[in-house]
Design a protein around this nucleic acid. Structure first.
Lengths: 239, 239
DNA sequence: ACGCAGCTGCGTACAGTGTTCGCAATGCCG
DNA sequence: CGGCATTGCGAACACTGTACGCAGCTGCGT
């Protein structure tokens, strides 16, 4: 086996920073990680693959990031920034909260891995974007006149998170199967019928919901539940 | 290197089914898996370790279980069985729903890995115990006279799941640190103060909640949010 | 202008993961 | 007693996250 050519030292021989790919940075890593997570889900993200996408070795990433878990925290905070919480205009706090809740749901569905990560690490993150999100929510509820804004926030966030977790997990399963939601539902029908057999109310419920589009059902569920929560909160407003 | 001794065939030489440990069965595997998950969390469960705990090789488990994901589904359904939903007596549906919700939360906190798994798979499982749970909830809400029982169920389940996910993830983090909740809170204080600095309402909220026991705060949050949801649902009862 | 320190990238290596496959042993049934 | 289906298992494969030490580049102080 011949040794490699001794590599004449020349400017032209040197690779000149690999096609001018900009340097590895924490921001670039997080951005690319989010892209990979969006594209192929949480189990498709490995340090080696991520490094390859950035024209870098796997272990180079560790110069900018302590551990994969930390990378996940950063990715979470990155997408949290997408949610926008409107300020309160007039006294229509319901509209504002509804928009914020819808924004959270939209983000969770756009990045279905988010729910899985939150399930493992909770909302205990201290990232700046999550903090800003919470603060905007807090001002919203405080401006609306709620006596215990943080309690109200916790209630609506719990509902929104629970809904989003369920929906996102379902969508991930559908995506893994590589089918559309309607196809998947059709293919799951036999097993579902079998599972609910012998349970009277469940069978009725299954028979009842026959909307053309499963996405509409999900959206209606979310709207209904959110309205319930907001109604409950409204009772706690002074006057 | 000498070959092993040729193993004289004798009754006494044969291991006689390894200390009379009962045979490997699906139920035994799931039971032990739940025990390991409870003890050391979701990342401590590996097929090899699980096999070792059952005096078996890792790959022997695959005779009874198709894949680790399937094992997780079985584990989830196993612990779901712990939640008991009371039947409706009289017209006090709030008490019944509150008890069911509390049961869900208690189970989720007793098995903190549950939320992590549900975060990846949602409530889309079709296990018999989950089905029975849903059916009992459905009869409860139907008996209470709700026009759309499944909508009501979805709303309260979303809230309960969201709360439980958050709490369980927090508790898992605390457990990984190997401290009590109060210790961990104390150690996290500086970082938290730093994170909320510059956010007026958050700072106030942090200053406000100074209960002696963090567990009490969590419980109060849950009770408050659940009351909100139930109030909202009550408005949807006919009459 | 030069030397040196520190930062960045990376190849190798390690311990561990889920899962497949072929082989051995066992228990059951005719 | 013979054959068969089931069960357990060791080895192997393709991966994973990450520690470590070495190379090269950059920029600073003198």
């Amino acid at each position: 086996m011949a040794a490699e050519t001794p590599a004449i030292p020349s400017v032209w021989a040197r690779p000149q920073r690999e096609a001018e790919q900009p340097v590895l940075s924490r921001e670039a890593i997080v951005r690319e990680a989010v892209a990979m997570l969006d594209a192929d889900g949480v189990e498709a993200l490995s340090m080696r693959k991520l490094g390859a996408r950035l024209n870098a070795g796997a272990t180079s990433l560790y110069r900018h990031i302590a551990t994969k878990d930390e990378l996940m925290e950063l990715a979470v905070d990155e997408v949290i920034a997408e949610i926008c919480v409107p300020a309160l205009v007039g006294d229509d706090w319901r509209a504002a909260v509804t928009e914020a809740a819808g924004g959270f749901r939209a983000t969770a569905l756009r990045h279905p891995w988010l729910s899985a990560v939150l399930g493992q690490a909770g909302l205990a993150y201290l990232g700046p974007n999550l903090m800003a999100f919470s603060e905007r929510l807090a001002t919203l509820f405080a401006d609306a006149g709620f006596p215990e804004p943080s309690r109200a926030i916790d209630a609506v966030l719990a509902f929104v998170l629970g809904m989003s977790v369920t929906e996102a997990a379902w969508l991930s399963t559908v995506a893994r199967a590589g089918e559309t939601e309607t196809e998947f539902v059709a293919r799951l029908m036999p097993a579902a019928r079998e599972a609910v057999s012998g349970h009277q109310h469940l069978t009725e419920a299954y028979a009842a919901q026959q909307a053309p589009d499963p996405a509409e059902i999900r959206e209606a569920k979310f709207a209904y539940g959110l309205a319930v929560v907001l109604d409950g909160l409204a009772l706690r407003l002074p006057r």
